[in-house]
Amino acid sequence: MNETNTSDLPMDEHTLETPVTPDALAKLKLGDVVYIDGTVFTGRIGLYKKLFDEKAEPPVDIRSLTNVTFHCSPAVGETSPGEWKVSAVTATASFRFEKHLPMLMDDHGVRVVIGKGGMSQEFYQNHFRRLGAVFLNTVGYGIGAQYGRGVKKVEAVHWLDELGIAQALWVLNVKRFGPFLVECDTEGRSLYQMALKETNAELMQLYEGLPLPTLKRMGEVHNPEDEVF
């Protein structure tokens, strides 16, 4: 891919079937629009702590289910005992999971991470590039009703009692689940790094003539070109 400006990205549309093949992953370009058919599983900090800090035996063989995970917890209702209906689903900020995500990718075969906000360039280079994985950003980020439409069935929920509805491992059967935007490709490049370069130039001009506050605080970021994580 040669584009260096977000304005020039073709934003091609793809539908990926799970498990997503390495060939299909390699075709994805930054800014492309992706829909998923098949199976995805949800996970966030409660699941990661249990799997990787407490080293609990996984309740299911994740690798045999799918290679797509979603950093989220759904809004679900129990329509009858053991029967769940997802009404809406949206992602939660992914950069908080950098500690555990490599283990999920290495030990459980995850190659597509759907989330919010992307992750650091260094993390992409160290892990996504190494494994030929991609990061897909949810759009918006609050378009949960639309994503809810793509969830056809709750296949299973694991560790519901231990982790609660919001943190449990949900296995979702999905069809035209999307749209998502390719944030990190298999080369570890980042759409947000491209975008940040474009917006920082305009942002810095607005700071001209505005002094730093009288009182500073420990641990703050002071250069507006930097990020807060």
């Binding site: 989220c72 917890s73 759904p74 809004a75 009404s87 809406a88 689903v89 949206t90 918006g140 609050g142 378009i143 949960g144 009703a145 639309q146 994503y147 809810g148 439409r149």
Partner: peptide, 14 residues
Amino acid sequence: NYEVADEDNVPMCA
């Protein structure tokens, strides 16, 4: 998405 939430009678954000 606002329209989908109304049509499907579901929360706009999960």
